[in-house]
Write a protein that binds this DNA or RNA. Structure first.
Length: 830
DNA sequence: GACCTGCTGCGGGATG
């Protein structure tokens, strides 16, 4: 492998001690490792893009190890900072780095620092740091917001940023970029190494890694590791009937079990926690061979998850059913099959998940995609094609979040007084904030100093004050303490603890129960649907709901078969634009239908006969009457979030047009709206005009609850509202109430408040997906195809099922749904 | 016999 090495080079790159360590293991320096060393020698920052495995982490650390080995004795100071999005990775790397350090015989200290590190150790690390510190973005922010920051970091030579693709573009990534900017100020000799999975466009990552100049832009060197073997991806299309709707993949559990039996170790990825619970439960029912299969998701108690991870590490498991919790993390060499249950949602996410299998360079990772319904078959096929062609989702760079900027300004004042001009220049050296106008920075600064003019009367919002010399300093030590309690960008929903126990005390007398072992957490809204005696699935067990005591949901184990499926309200996994365009391409092009399973082909052919198959960039709009209601169904294939926004805005227009709309239902692929009047005579071009993104949108948002929730997150991150902390008597509801109050006050009295702007930006990028909706509307202008029908069309059946599920009172009543499906299918065939 | 939706990540520190 590799190119011929220049015989004059090797000595210059790797010192003899290192070379013989490589030799002793039968390793050769890989090309990308050499390139990182050469970049470091030239004092250049670099982005290393490579698939998992292949010594990427070692490549990031090699230059630091070499430099530290050449350092004069007795000179110890923080040399290299490693940042990972996961605490577990920091701890794992600590273990892994110690091997080469010991074996080469280097005098280098390595320590991890996370929220789990003992506070005495954290304190000591400020004054006597190790040579290499392994940590998280939040910890760096905390270290920087301390008077000791300058001493600690002034000698820093290198920052290694692991899994950078997973941080960039998020608020955590924004926070980290601002911290980098401060580090560049404190340690001008600093270079960075970014480690990233393969991305569609590395440029934003390369910019992220170096200080941006006032004019133009700068980027780190790009080093591309050799791609491994293309993964072997298959889409499961058995003989079974492919469901018309639903997302559980239940019809395929038998085949999933067989696949697990046929592999050494399998990761079964699901898209939701409830899907993971259901899948796990059903696999155990099928598990005649008693295979050790485990469950892992984010609402399970941490200790339980750690037991599963340890069992995996020890080779004791055949499969784990999991959610995105295992998208990243410690490599498990034994995994040789990845199953993705349900729609893959995006090519990059899929590649990341597939990469969890088989880290040997010369063998392909094996992956099996299991579509749960007909539309998902299209999505799985589109995703497989993208992976086969080596294509990924492109994600544009978006400007840094303003609430994060406010938090950072506050933190910087905790370290030492700053001059606004200097801090502005520093902040704009961070790539996400390179385009930040001074005027916006000044408003953020003013917010940290006063809360904004609507809040000026409230003393508690005054966090920094101006000194006579023009510099800003923290107001008092308490305010600095408050910063430390509120640092970070992750905001959680208030949750209940699920614990074993009964109401009424252990001895049967009334009184306080002593709750037992904690199994995990559940959200208030699901809890509120339970009445004592109900049974539900959680942590892989059937539990009986006993009652609520304070923030504990008390449960006992049960053997009931009548189980409710718990659900959580996480933010929505968006279907990537890239993948939705590819799904459209398949549907639009009958020449490509041959690769689809027979049932799906028949479905599309039937659609062509009974209604219409749109051409690229056309939007098909069907109307038909059913059960005394008129339905309008359109198929943008643009993801549920954009369809949700479109549905809201269309409904408002239909209302004005006198159609008396009754409801709408978005799916990933389509949108249905139903109403009392027949819409087929409407001017569709006017209905779908781009101008709906103007006043209609503003009207709707004015009183949208979602907007308040978004604002709450921004207000917490910016430090306007305190987080919940153990010991503080402030429930989640009280926090959101006060956030709602502040939101209303600001909307009325200070509509240009920085946090309203921050919330609007979040909403536009998040629950509204404005960019996507805008692209959708402009794509279809002049390409609407209206098809008034007598009956429901084949494409519409799954959408109608989805709508039926949501509108049937009392949740999904199976008998009614089955009946609905029968009716729809016979009407469709009519 | 179907059918059950929405992810993850982190987190004071000085003093007794």
């Amino acid at each position: 492998m590799g190119r011929m090495l220049d015989p004059s080079l090797p000595d210059a790159v790797l010192p003899p001690r290192f070379q013989s360590w490589f030799d002793g293991r039968g390793w050769r320096l890989r090309d990308h490792q050499r390139a990182v060393l050469e970049a470091a020698r030239a004092e250049a920052s670099a982005l290393l893009v490579a698939p998992t495995g292949g010594g990427k982490t070692l490549a990031g650390f090699l230059p630091s190890l070499v430099e530290l080995s050449e350092r004069p004795k007795n000179q110890r100071s923080l040399h290299t900072l490693y940042v990972s999005p996961l605490k577990a990775l920091a701890v794992d790397i600590e273990r892994n780095l110690k091997t080469p350090i010991e074996e080469i015989g280097l005098d280098i200290q390595v320590e991890a620092r996370t929220g789990d590190t003992k506070s005495s150790v954290r304190q000591r690390q400020r004054t006597r740091p190790p040579d290499i510190l392994l940590t998280t973005p939040e910890q760096i922010a905390l270290l920087l917001a301390h008077p000791s920051a300058e001493d600690l970091f002034s000698g820093l030579r290198c920052v290694v940023l692991d899994e950078l693709h997973a941080l960039r573009g998020s608020k955590r990534g924004d926070l980290l970029s601002l911290d980098l900017a401060r580090l560049w100020t404190l340690a001008p000799a600093l270079r960075t190494v970014g480690l990233s999975a393969t991305v569609a466009d590395p440029l934003p990552l390369r910019r992220y890694l170096v200080p941006q100049p006032e004019e133009g832009s700068a980027e780190a060197a790009l080093i591309e590791g050799k791609g491994g073997v293309r993964p072997d991806v298959r889409v499961m299309t058995g003989e079974d009937r492919i469901p018309w709707s639903g997302h559980s993949g239940r019809h395929a559990f038998g085949a999933v079990y067989e696949a697990i039996k046929g592999a050494t170790t399998t990761l079964v990825f699901t898209n939701t926690r409830s899907q993971a619970e259901v899948c796990f439960q059903e696999l155990w029912k099928l598990n005649e061979d008693s295979l050790p299969i485990a469950l892992h998701h984010g609402s399970l108690e941490r200790a339980q998850r750690e037991r599963v991870e340890a069992a995996m590490q020890a080779g004791g498991l055949r499969a784990i059913v999991c959610t995105a919790t295992l998208d990243m993390g410690i490599d498990w060499g034994a995994v040789d099959l990845v199953i993705c249950l349900g729609a893959p949602k995006g090519a990059s996410r899929l590649v990341q998940r597939i990469g969890r299998a088989n880290h040997r360079m010369d063998e392909p990772s094996r992956a099996l995609l299991v579509p749960a319904n007909r539309f998902e078959v299209l999505e799985c096929v589109a995703a497989k094609e993208a992976v086969d062609a080596g294509l990924l989702d492109g994600e544009g760079a978006k400007p840094g979040a303003l609430d994060v900027l406010c938090q950072h300004i506050w933190g910087m004042a905790c370290a030492e007084p700053f001059h606004p001009d200097h801090l502005y220049r520093e902040v704009t050296s961070a790539a996400p904030y390179a385009g930040l106008p001074r005027e916006v920075f000044d408003r953020a600064l003013d917010f940290v100093a006063t809360g904004g003019y609507a809040m000026k009367a409230y003393d508690r919002y005054r966090r920094i004050v101006r000194q006579p010399d023009g510099r800003m300093r923290i107001r008092d030590p308490r305010t600095a303490q408050l910063y430390r309690l509120n640092a970070g960008t992750i905001v959680e929903m208030p949750v209940y603890n699920v614990r074993i126990g009964r109401l009424g005390g252990t001895d049967g007398k009334p009184g306080r129960a002593r709750p037992g072992r904690k199994l995990g957490t559940m959200e208030e809204w699901f809890t509120s649907q339970l009445t004592p005696g109900d049974t539900f699935l959680f942590a892989g067990e059937v539990l009986r709901f006993e009652g609520i005591q304070e923030t504990d949901v008390l449960v006992t184990k049960s053997r009931s078969d009548e189980v409710k499926i718990p659900s959580w309200q996480g933010s929505k996994f968006p279907l990537s634009s890239f993948l939705s365009a590819r799904v459209r391409d398949i549907v639009n092009d009958p020449a490509r239908w041959g690769q689809l399973p027979a049932q799906v082909q028949e479905w599309l052919h039937l659609q062509r006969r009974k209604s219409y198959v749109p051409k690229p960039d056309e939007l098909l709009i069907e109307t038909f009457e059913r059960a005394e209601k008129f339905h309008l169904v359109c198929y943008p294939f643009d993801g549920r979030i954009a369809h949700q926004s479109l549905g809201t805005l269309l409904t408002r227009r239909l209302e004005r047009a006198g159609m008396q709309p009754l409801g709408f239902c978005p799916t990933e692929y389509a949108l249905s709206v139903w109403m009392r009047r027949d819409p087929s005579g409407l001017d569709m071009d006017a209905l779908f005009d781009e101008d709906m993104l103007g006043d209609d949108l503003d009207d709707w948002l004015a009183d949208a609850q979602l907007m308040k929730r978004t604002f709450r997150n921004c207000a917490i991150i910016a430090g306007m509202i305190e987080r919940n902390h153990p010991g503080q008597e402030k429930s989640g509801r009280q926090v959101s109430f006060s956030a709602g109050l502040i939101y209303d006050v600001l909307r009325e009295h200070e509509p240009d408040h920085i946090l309203l702007q921050a919330a609007w930006n979040d909403a536009a990028a998040g629950f509204l997906d404005i960019r996507r909706l805008g692209a959708l509307l402009s794509r279809i202008q002049g390409h609407l195809v209206l098809k008034p029908l007598a009956h429901v069309s084949p494409l519409a059946v799954p959408v109608m099922m989805e709508a039926g599920r949501e509108t049937i009172i009392g949740g999904a009543n199976e008998a009614i749904l089955a009946e609905l499906q029968e009716e729809l299918l016979s009407e469709m065939m009519a």
